[in-house]
Amino acid sequence: MSMEDRLVIDSRLEAVAEARDWLAERASRAGFSSQTVSDLKLALTEAVSNVVRHAYGGEPGHQIVLSLAMDDEALTLTIRDFGRPFDPGRYREPDLSEPQEGGYGVFLMHNLMDEVRYDTSSGVGTTLTLVKRRGDNPSTGSEHGLSGSSRQDP
């Protein structure tokens, strides 16, 4: 069993909360644990905030298209923008030995998600794909597939 959905938001930081709630509601309904839903909310927020600030330079009035696909194996979120393409080669991991005021966003995405992929091959903007696989989470119990909807996390 699978589920797909789509949301288009404007390139404003104020719109990120709407996307966060949209994702959380659907992931919760699909049986992902509360910890995984928290991880997804944080990864989405970092990703979409980066699009607003860097791909679109903080300028409102541009589209950000979010596509969500879930099945018994995983949740896949793609975030499509049409702004300045992201260059992963310029990314530097933050120095965790000292508190930093920036540079954690991409680092967090990579640590929270099972897969993070960037695609700039279209020549316009970036498609970022975030994948979170279902799996046992020691702190919150196991996550249930969509086909097991009769079982819910406590």
């Binding site: 966060r20 909310k41 944080l42 927020t45 508190p99 005021e101 954690y104 966003g105």
Partner: peptide
């Protein structure tokens, strides 16, 4: 209930 890296940055800025 929710905090991202910009919230962290505000705390670190104050701390430093």
């Amino acid at each position: 209930p929710f905090m991202d890296s910009s919230g962290i940055a505000a705390m670190v800025n104050l701390f430093k």
